[in-house]
């Protein structure tokens, strides 16, 4: 790499460190949140620079987008309930000094140990490359996610489901209806929603051969949902249909895995010939579930399926 790319990388890395520093030390939590979102955007650039476009997509959609929206929303709730400014700037006192020194020492050691890693590391790239033809897809990341390490992904979807359950448990109440959306917002929503759905579908489909996949698609889809909610607040109640959709992705994934196991293979062992279609099927189901999951995480729930007030 030439020095020019190094400049870019150095600037980007420097910015990231600076952002991390500032977002932790700014006394205003709102600004910290904004910096956090910015941090996410810049991070996705870093992923790009590191040849990880899938991660970049996810970071942009989830890390910056969904998380940002969630934090903003939480900030608002805190504002409404109590002072969000309880956060004091991090003045240095003795424990913090000790902590800082320790963390610095740890960081130095971390850096040193990373730099002293033996060269010639190949990772699993060659193994991956060798296994790719049997994976049913072209994008090695998707292959890893849904085939080689599909089990991780299954559990990951479980985590998403659990987050919804947790939010439901907490009876997170909906925001009081905001002022009716203005015409600009209506137009914006109308303009943005269709492309969002399309982009989500595109990302899902593209996942097989190019960066993209269920999570990214779901995040974009969810962004649409959140947008809609922001314009016209609706409540995703803990209703049968909602639960079915939430559980759908996980159930499909699990049942596919189990079916394959009962058919003589191993759990989640996708047969080479059907791997592609199975992955697409799982991803589709997962995307729908995950999208709704994100929406629920954002919207929260205050009503159970019987329609009784639960707060």
């Amino acid at each position: 790499m030439s020095g020019d790319t190094l400049v870019l990388d150095l600037v980007l890395a420097g910015l990231l460190v600076f952002l991390a520093w500032r977002l932790l030390t700014l006394s205003d939590l709102f600004k910290a949140t904004v910096l956090f979102i910015v941090f996410g955007v810049l991070l996705s650039l870093a992923w790009v620079r590191l040849n990880a476009p899938d991660v970049a997509l996810a970071e942009a959609a989830i890390g910056a987008g969904v998380t940002g929206a969630l934090v903003l929303d939480a900030l608002r709730r805190l504002d409404a309930r109590g002072p969000a400014d309880e956060a004091q700037p991090l003045r240095l006192n003795l424990p913090r000094l000790v902590g800082a020194l320790l963390v610095m020492g740890l960081g130095a050691f971390l850096l040193w140990s990373v730099l002293s890693l033996p060269p010639g590391w190949r990772g699993l790239s060659s193994e991956t490359a060798a296994a790719m033809p049997r994976s049913g897809v072209v994008n090695p990341v998707t292959a890893s996610l849904l085939n080689f390490r599909g089990y991780d992904t299954l559990l990951e979807i479980a985590v998403l489901m659990l987050a919804v359950l947790g939010v439901w448990t907490l009876n997170a109440e909906p925001m009081p209806p905001a002022e009716p959306a203005g015409p600009i917002l209506d137009v914006l929503v109308k303009a943005l929603l269709p492309p969002m759905v399309v982009v989500a579908g595109y990302l899902l489909w593209a996942g097989g051969h190019a960066p993209g996949g269920a999570f990214q698609g779901a995040a974009v889809l969810a962004a649409g949902g959140i947008l809609l909610h922001l314009a016209r607040p609706f409540n995703v109640a803990n209703r049968g249909v909602v639960r079915l959709v939430i559980g759908f992705g996980f159930a499909v994934f699990l049942l596919v895995g189990l079916t394959l196991a009962t058919l003589g293979g191993r759990f989640l062992e996708l047969p080479e010939r059907h791997a592609g279609i199975l992955i697409l099927m799982i991803e589709t189901a997962a995307m729908i579930s995950i999208a709704l999951t994100f929406v629920v995480l954002f919207v929260g729930n205050a009503r159970d399926n019987a329609g009784r007030d639960t707060s």
Binding site: A158, M161, L165, G240, I246, G247, F250, A251, L255
Partner: peptide
Amino acid sequence: MEGTLAAPLLGAVLALIAGR
């Protein structure tokens, strides 16, 4: 082993879908 692994997971999602 498969039973051990899958039974609770399946039960969980079924319980979620089935509701109260």
